[in-house]
Computed example of a mutant assay.
Amino acid sequence: MLSRRAFLTTSASLLGAGAAVGGYARFVEPEWLDVTTRELPVRALPPALHGKRLVQLSDIHVGPRVRDAYVRDTFARVRALRPDIVVVTGDLISHHVGQFPHAEAMYAEMPLGALGTFVSFGNHDYGINWQQPDVAASLRSIMENLGATVLVNEVAVVAGLQIVGLGDLWGGAFRPERAFAQVDPALAQLVLSHNPDTADLPGWGSYNGWILAGHTHGGQCKAPFLPPPILPVQNRRYTSGAFDLPAGRQMYISRGVGTYLPVRFNVRPEVTMFTLRAA
C-alpha cells in the first residue's frame, strides 16, 4: 500500500513535471524557431534559377499572441539566409485592434527576396470568421506598398518561374481555374495555397508540380510518435512536411512561424529554405 509520504512525494513530482511541460509549451517552444533546409526540384526550371534560395514563411500571425520581438528575430534570421525569393503562404495577421498599423510596422522589417517577394493569403487575413474581404484588401495594399507582390488566384513570373498564388479556401476566395487560366504550361510553375485541403479539390488541371502550404501549424501540440490530436483540415494526413499527391503533384506544409493559441509542444515553429533544382 502506498504510504502517505510516498503519495505526497509522487504527487509533488507529477505536479512539478506537469508545470515544467506546461512552461516549456507556453514559453519555450513557441519561439524555438527551426530553419529547415531542403531541395525543391522544379520541372523546366530556368538555368538562371538553379541553386537559388527560396524561403517560405507561413502563419506569422502578427498580433497580440505573437511577440513582436520574436517576429523581428525571425525576419533577421531570414535576412541572414540572403534569399533570392521569399514567399509567404498566408495568415500574416490575427485580428486585433490596430491590426493595420501594427502589420505595416512589422512587415516593413520583413526581408524581401533579391528577385521578388510573393504573398498568398490565409483565412485569418480575411478578418472575423474569415468573412471580411475588406480586411484582405487593406492588407494587400499594405504589403504591396512595402514591395511584396500579393497573389489571389493570380500569377507572377520571376526569372522564368511562374508563381501561382491561390485564394484562401475558408475565406471563400479559392478559384484555381481562374489562376491556372493565366499559366503558360511550357514554363516552370510553383503554387502557393494556404490550406492543404485545396490539394484534394478540383480545378488543378494538368498541374504536376509543388504546392507550398501552411495553415496547420503542424497541429501545434502532439505527443511523441503520435499524430496531432487537433488539425484544422479535413484530410488528417496533412500535418506538416512533404507529401506525394495524385497526378504527380507534391506538397510541402510548413509548421508556420507564429501561433493563434500561444502554445507548442513537439511541433517547433519553422522557416523553410529551399534550394531550387531542375527536376
Rank of each mutant, 00 (worst) to 15 (best):
Q131K: 13
K52L: 14
V55I: 14
P133A: 14
S58M: 11
T216C: 03
I163D: 03
R237A: 07
G258D: 03
Q131Y: 10
S254W: 01
P46D: 10
P111I: 08
S58Q: 11
Q56W: 13
A44L: 12
H217P: 00
V88C: 14
L231R: 00
R72S: 15
F118S: 11
P224D: 02
G165W: 01
N145I: 00
L115H: 13
P46G: 09
T239M: 01
Q162V: 09
T149N: 14
D134N: 12
P269R: 05
V35L: 11
P83W: 05
G218T: 01
L245K: 01
M1C: 09
M143I: 10
L161F: 07
G241P: 00
K222Q: 08
V21L: 15
W204I: 03
R249L: 05
H95T: 15
D59W: 03
V233I: 00
A213I: 04
D200S: 13
M251K: 06
L54H: 10
G122R: 04
L161N: 00
H217D: 00
S3I: 01
L192V: 10
A17V: 14
H50V: 11
G98H: 04
R38K: 10
G16N: 03
A173W: 06
E104W: 06
V62T: 15
Y126F: 11
R65P: 09
S240K: 00
V257L: 12
T198F: 01
V62H: 02
G147C: 08
V66M: 02
H50T: 12
H215R: 02
D59H: 02
V257E: 04
F174Y: 08
Y207K: 11
R77N: 04
P232V: 01
S13G: 14
N266Y: 09
V71M: 05
Q250V: 02
Q99L: 13
Y207F: 15
L33N: 03
R175G: 04
P101L: 06
P229N: 00
Y126T: 09
R38M: 12
D200T: 13
Q234N: 14
V191T: 07
V119C: 10
V62D: 08
A69L: 13
P185K: 07
L212A: 08
G122H: 00
R43G: 09
L276C: 14
F121S: 07
V257S: 06
H217V: 00
A80G: 12
W210K: 08
P41I: 03
T275V: 15
A137H: 13
R65D: 14
S94L: 06
A19I: 14
Q189Y: 06
V42W: 02
